[in-house]
Amino acid sequence: MSPAATAADAAARAHARQVLAHLVLVRRFEERCAIEYQATRIRGFLHLYIGEEAVAVGCLAPLEGRDNVIATYREHGHALVRGLSPASVMAEMFGKASGCSGGRGGSMHLFSAQHRFYGGQAIVGGGLPVAVGLALADRMRDTGAVTMAFFGEGAVVEGEFHEALNLAALWELPVVFVCENNGYAMGTALGRAHAQPDVWRRAAGYGVETEVVDGMDVIAVEAAARRIVERVRAERRPYLLEARTYRFRAHSMFDPELYRDKAEVAAWRERCPIATYVARMTAAGTLTADDVAAIEAAVAARVDEAVAFAEAAPWEPVAALTRHVTAEAP
């Protein structure tokens, strides 16, 4: 093999390990969250992303530090892939002062200024106009940054989706709209709520270019995201990526899943984005069984450390209750 080919091969192996490490981190972190929830250390709503990991992992791969990310209440994966530490996210889930939002937000409101991670927005559709504003600020100052906004297909029938798409197209703003179409708005199947079942067709009405990708295939998602981010950054106009995916777990921990067939869930589980990625990469020789085992072990250790950190982290004193409402006097 030529030296160039060898270098490319090494890079591909390293990249595959990185992708798998992200996929596995999100999966194992959330599996642990479910356990911590049952142990009542995590309370409130807990919306697991399990099954959809390839979307966040693939989409966030091409982003730079200057770019902005805004997500929904099902955002643990996006936060972790964006670089928030598992410890700070787990501490936030526990409601501890060392959490990434100081404990004030919980599972649905993960934030990090350092990572330009703008939440954790839990009103369906509400983050989309904010994404327009984030991009408007960059456009007006010509920073070259792009904004990536994640939302579910449920948001597509909210007015704010349409207002945001129109504004972003009208003002030529660098927004990558990523629709994570998992087929259900809580318990409402897409076909029972959308007169037009193809999400991507909505964007055409605003002159916004679109792409549809298999959201269970991290390689396809990442390739699409790289093409789109490059174009959005260069052309300064929005783009919509519809990723077709599936949530393996219930909507939240309160959901008895009366609205979908077990056979449907089982069929989608066959397409698990992690198992299929591992199978492809090992078959191609890009990943080895040792790689997978090492990644699983490292992730397991990080998740254990995150839980230990969260358990040991302090509670914010009640005396501080009224902080973070408005700026504190200097």
Partner: peptide, 26 residues
């Protein structure tokens, strides 16, 4: 027109855009 910016009739859209622009330095 960039700094005295007419908007469409999208109150939630342009108020939210104001929130985002404010969070991002404007």
């Amino acid at each position: 027109p960039a700094r005295v910016r007419d908007t469409p009739l999208s109150e939630s859209g342009f108020v939210g855009a104001g929130v985002g622009a404010a969070m991002n330095g404007m």
